[in-house]
Amino acid sequence: MSVQLTKGESAEMYIKAIGELTLEEALVPISTLASRLGISPVSATEMVHRIVEQGLVEHERYKGVRLTETGKRRAMLVLRRHRLWERFLTDKLKLPWEDVHDLACRLEHAVGTEVIDALVDFLDEPSSCPHGNPIPNSEGEFEYSDGVQLNTLRQGDEGVILRIHPESRDVLSFLAQKRIKPGAALSVIDVDDFDGLLTISINGVDQIIGQRIASHIVVAA
């Protein structure tokens, strides 16, 4: 069951990743992009050059990349398909929460707009993916609701998990194992001042998690 990606598909993958990593106007460093995609910085640079030629991104030397207007639109539409597929896979096919991200990564490039429109109808126009991230509308517009990263909370703070962002297989399976999912209420019991480990109480159990994984968890405080 190997799926070989075509050139166009991997370009979509790149712009989607850049889109996810972009915070407003900031440039995304290529090294960040590479580690997000789990590839070496060399191959990332190479690919970036190719999609620059396609007019999807702008590259500022030594600083990073940013999506062009076309690129941004394309990226948001891929994101829309991706998150819709995730919904479908969890809600309808009952596949595991932590697996659907990777599966959707492969489905997102596959089909045309008719299928996606049908999917939207079938799913009853969902507003967010199973990991809590908003689904862009057909114009490619969406907004993240206000929230803060869990690692910025202090001892005694409480909140509800809004979303997991950015998503990746490793992060999701780690969180699934600890049963940390959007919608759950949590409170910070302790933040270790030596190594920054957070002890949180969630679903009635204490969990200890590191700063890095905590930065993937966005909570409404």
Partner: peptide
């Protein structure tokens, strides 16, 4: 280890 994600084809 499962090598699903794109970009890991080589490992597969």
């Amino acid at each position: 280890k499962r090598a699903f994600h794109h970009g890991q084809r080589r490992r597969k």
